[in-house]
Each structure stands twice: as C-alpha cells, then as structure tokens.
Computed example of a mutant assay.
Amino acid sequence: MKLRITTPIPTLLFTLFALLLQLSCVHSQHTSNWAVLVSTSRFWFNYRHLANVLSMYRTVKRLGIPDSQIILMLADDVACNPRNVFPASVFNNADRGLDLYGDNIEVDYRGYEVTVENFIRLLTDRVEPDTPRSKRLLTDDRSNIFVYMTGHGGNEFLKFQDAEEISAFDIADAFEQMWEKKRYHQMLFMIDTCQANTMYSKFYSPNILATGSSKLDQSSYSHHADNDVGVAVIDRYTYYNLEFLENNVKNASSKHTMKDLFDSYDTKKIHSDPGVRTDLFHRNLDEVLITDFFGNVQNVETDGVGEDEKWKVDVSELARLAANITSPKKQQKEIKVEELKGKAEKKISAFKVEEKASWTQGVVGATALVACALAWFGGSFMPK
C-alpha cells in the first residue's frame, strides 16, 4: 500500500517552518524577572499609596524575585511618621494581620530621590557612573519587567510628590528607549491612579502588556480605612489584584495566567472600569503565566536532559520529516543505496576472511614440503 501525499509541498514546508519558529521562540524565553515599584505620593493622608507598593513588593518577593532585582521607590516613609500609632509598621488591612514594612525591606530610592528625572534615568540606564548597583535596572533583552506605579494622577499625567508630573508621552518614550537599547524582553505595566488607563494610551513599543485601574474621567477609590490609623490603607484596584494573587498564585509553579487575573476584575467591587491594553503584546493572554512577571525564572532539567538538548532533537526530527516530504523518491533511493552498501560490505568482509584462510593453508603446505625435502636430503648423507 502506497502513501499518497495530497497536501501541496509549499504548504507542508510552511507548516514545518512555523513549527521550527515556534520551537525557536520557546527556546528564547526570558532569563530573568525584574520589578520597578513606585509610590509617587507624599504626606500622611496618602498612606494607602505606600501600602499599595509595599503590598506588591511583598508579593513579588514571595514568588521568588530577589531584592537585587527589585527597584523600590518610596516618595514618603509613613512608617516613621509621628502620626503613626504603630511606629515602623505599615498595614494594608484594618485587621493589621500583616506588617508590610517589617525587618526585611530594601528601599532603593527614598524621599526626594523619587523624581521624574531619576525614574526616567533608571529605566533608560542614563544614571551617573558612580550609581550603586542597587539603584540600577540591570536588565537586558532576555529580561521581563513588571512596572507598578501608584499615586495621584489625571488625564495622561501622574504627580510626583505634588511638585512635578510625568506624562504618558514621557513614559512611552522611555519605554521606546529601553526597547532600542535592548533592555527588556516583555513588560507588564500596571498603574493605580485616577484616569489610570490614559497613562498607557501613548505606548508604541512592542511586547508591552498594560493595565490600569480606571478609564478617562473616572476616579480610582480606596478600599477601606483603619480607624486607629485614621486614613485609608489600600486602594480598591490594588486590593483585588492582591486578593487574586494571594488566593490563587500560591508559589512560583502556579499555572494561573494573566487572562485569569484580568477576568477576575469586577467593576462593581473596584468601583471603576479597569482597562487592559494588549495590541502591543503579541501573545495570547491565556498562555502568559502570571509568574512570567510576578515570579522568578527557574530552569529545571529532568533526567539529565535540558531544554537545549530537547530542542535540538525536535529540530532534527522536523528536518528529517521535511526531507521525506520534499523528496520521498530520493529518500527511498538513499535507503536502497545504504542497504546495497551494507550487503557489499558483508560480502567483502567474507571474501577477506576466505583469502586469509587460503594463504594460511598455503604456508602450512609449503612448510610441510620443505620439511620432507630436508629429511630426504639429510637421509642421503647417512651411511648405508
């Protein structure tokens, strides 16, 4: 029975090329995760903005991103504010079950260091030469970056410490410089402020997934207040993001996707319309793990075979299949030639063995004749 190929050869080649491209994309996944977490507000009544950032800080650390790959920018340190009835502590819930400040926190930019200029210099790596490593974003084209910002904002702007503003154009241009300088692989931009969705409306660089808490002309609202603290302790949008992450993404091996997170948004709970922008991000959200941005990269090898070896084997197999499809007759001829060569080698080997045996037998016979001749010749000199 002969197998008949009805699919056109160009179509099959295109399919194989697509498979090879997919394998190469899998092979070129990101190799590090970074987080840039920014609270832009000062003053005690903005307590919740600090709590927002420290909550995200705790989450990314819980999922494996080390402090060496987190840039934490706090415009104000309410933990040390004299109005704080719980000194050196920051809480994001009225039950005060979790101290976000604690003993294990590394603030990289504090107080008046949190400026628009320093933020843009950080992103674009245009810092002073003597800037310590802890204040630099040491990413490359294999790095995924999670950028989270919170504070007071409006239509296409975000305030920094009530003294200056960063615009949507500023951030868009900074991200484009990062792309040109190969400073990221993929990026997740998340912002919690009034009219937040306008802040990513000007983005034009590839591989950026963006989300915000409210659309144009909408405010973002706090979730609840702590009567003892005296002010609101967290914003609604951040609260429900954290609720999903805490309840579903227990560790870095979680299989929950960004689609799961975005589908969990409920406008009735958030009291505004959160937005998601995906046109610059060329991956299906149901295939993008939350830990691609919130977790750390973990390379695992099974049975001593790494992903590199598996990839090479897959490519070799596809190349062999392509050869069979493009020239099946040639492949059959090559197989027949190989079979004939194998048979010929067997015959030659057998012939050599027989030749060796005949030569050995000849030597033995000649030796016997010489021995007989010597015996006869020696016997002729013996006395009768």
Rank of each mutant, 00 (worst) to 15 (best):
residue 18 A to V: 08
residue 21 L to Q: 13
residue 21 L to E: 12
residue 25 C to H: 15
residue 28 S to A: 15
residue 34 W to E: 05
residue 35 A to D: 04
residue 36 V to P: 07
residue 39 S to E: 03
residue 47 Y to E: 01
residue 56 M to A: 08
residue 57 Y to G: 05
residue 62 R to Q: 04
residue 66 P to S: 10
residue 71 I to L: 11
residue 77 D to T: 09
residue 84 N to E: 00
residue 102 G to Y: 07
residue 107 V to K: 02
residue 110 R to W: 09
residue 110 R to F: 10
residue 110 R to N: 04
residue 112 Y to V: 13
residue 124 T to Q: 08
residue 135 K to S: 00
residue 135 K to V: 02
residue 146 F to E: 06
residue 149 M to V: 07
residue 154 G to D: 08
residue 163 A to R: 15
residue 164 E to N: 08
residue 165 E to C: 14
residue 168 A to C: 10
residue 169 F to N: 12
residue 179 W to F: 08
residue 183 R to V: 10
residue 186 Q to S: 06
residue 194 C to A: 03
residue 195 Q to E: 03
residue 201 S to M: 09
residue 202 K to V: 03
residue 202 K to W: 02
residue 206 P to M: 05
residue 215 K to I: 06
residue 219 S to V: 05
residue 231 V to P: 00
residue 234 I to F: 04
residue 234 I to L: 06
residue 252 A to F: 06
residue 254 S to Q: 01
residue 264 S to C: 03
residue 275 G to W: 01
residue 276 V to D: 02
residue 282 H to K: 13
residue 296 N to K: 12
residue 301 E to L: 09
residue 301 E to H: 12
residue 311 W to M: 12
residue 316 S to F: 08
residue 322 A to F: 02
residue 323 A to C: 03
residue 325 I to S: 05
residue 327 S to E: 08
residue 329 K to T: 14
residue 334 E to K: 10
residue 336 K to Q: 14
residue 342 G to Y: 11
residue 343 K to L: 09
residue 356 K to Q: 09
residue 358 S to W: 13
residue 362 G to K: 13
residue 363 V to A: 11
residue 367 T to I: 14
residue 370 V to Q: 08
residue 372 C to D: 12
residue 375 A to L: 15
residue 376 W to S: 11
